[in-house]
Design a binder for these strands. Structure first.
Lengths: 189, 189
DNA sequence: GTACAACTAGTACGATAGTTCAACTACTGG
DNA sequence: CCAGTAGTTGAACTATCGTACTAGTTGTAC
């Protein structure tokens, strides 16, 4: 549920809308400058509001990062759920999702990864960060009964994404799809 | 307050030795508090030297982080090379290396990951960060001729490591070895 | 011993961080 | 209309940051 950044007139954003706006500004900064760049002041500036207002909604910087990570994870969760429930081949969709880490979607994937790394250090964030993996696992389970294969698909998704981020090359969804497919196929023989 | 950072025989550390000491202190901080915790002051305190000394060796914080990442990558590179050249099964060694991300080696793996994430954002650092992947790929190539399988092993190594860091569970080398093995075996069918 | 380069130490400056706070404004229920 | 509350503001506090700078010490080549 994306909120508008401002109403354009004198009316003030209130409650959840303002909250969403601040989270959006936070993510914009994580995408542009990394998690290190997130401070109350930079977020406020990005959102065009005062520093104290970000503090009004998020008492500490940690709260803000948790909210940001939750938000970005929610989005991926939603997209993976759609893949699972759709009629099409879920693996194709997953491959496309991973391939998005290159090109225009790069910053977004990088933000997700950066926040995940942060999560490894803050136990409170881990359940949120694990959701992406849980969802990929669920998707994989629609394709196989082998727990090892499920684990492999999750790890592959993560690792392929990292590879794409580290190289600057284009990512070919078909190629990704092929690698994921092989990881599953071996259990069917 | 006489210099605690001397060699014990009165001689001062100089040149590369001092450099190495500062890098070591930096890595200790990355392991304990993350890359965010790295400042000239914290590094100096960790090493038991003055702030200006860290600046003497590393003009900017960036220089210091680059040196730290290079150092940690060099170490992994060395270990993987040993695996490749050793008589034993390289895959077993790789599995052990990955399994180390749990338990006592957790902080070290986390540091490596954190610095790698940093690298995704600074093009100059990427070649350094890519070395770990290149080495794993080289190791994999001793086991298979299939480029896809090599790519899969690299991605799996990365993803499995991330999974271990995100969960707090123990990591079973045999299990990891099995998953890596399957990724290679399927190409032989 | 002297000179010069390498090194060490302490201090200081300007910038920015997280956070607090009292005062102010806009909206809402009565 | 008024009172109460949610939302908002700007200034100020303390702490720490990266870095600069000066002055002093040490090692070494002559």
């Amino acid at each position: 549920m994306t909120a508008e950044h401002d109403t354009g007139d004198g009316r003030k954003l209130r409650g959840q809308r303002r909250r969403a706006q601040i989270i959006e500004a936070t993510l914009a900064i994580v995408r542009r400058d990394g998690a290190t760049g997130v401070t109350h002041r930079t977020v406020a500036k990005e959102a065009g509001i005062t520093t104290s207002l970000t503090l009004y909604y998020f008492a500490t910087l940690d709260d803000l990062l948790v909210a940001a990570l939750t938000s970005v994870t929610d989005e991926y969760t939603h997209r993976i759920r759609q893949l699972i429930e759709s009629e099409d081949e879920p693996l194709d969709g997953l491959a496309h999702l991973i391939a998005e880490s290159a090109g225009p979607g790069r910053e977004r994937a990088l933000a997700e990864r950066e926040l995940s790394t942060l999560a490894a250090r803050r136990p409170a964030l881990r359940p949120v960060a694990r959701r992406w993996r849980d969802n990929v696992a669920e998707l994989a389970r629609t394709q196989t009964d082998d727990p090892d294969a499920v684990e492999a698909v999750v790890a592959l998704s993560d690792g392929l994404c990292a590879a794409i981020l580290l190289n600057d090359e284009e990512a070919d969804p078909n190629h990704i799809r092929a690698i994921l497919g092989k990881a599953l196929r071996r259990t069917r023989q």
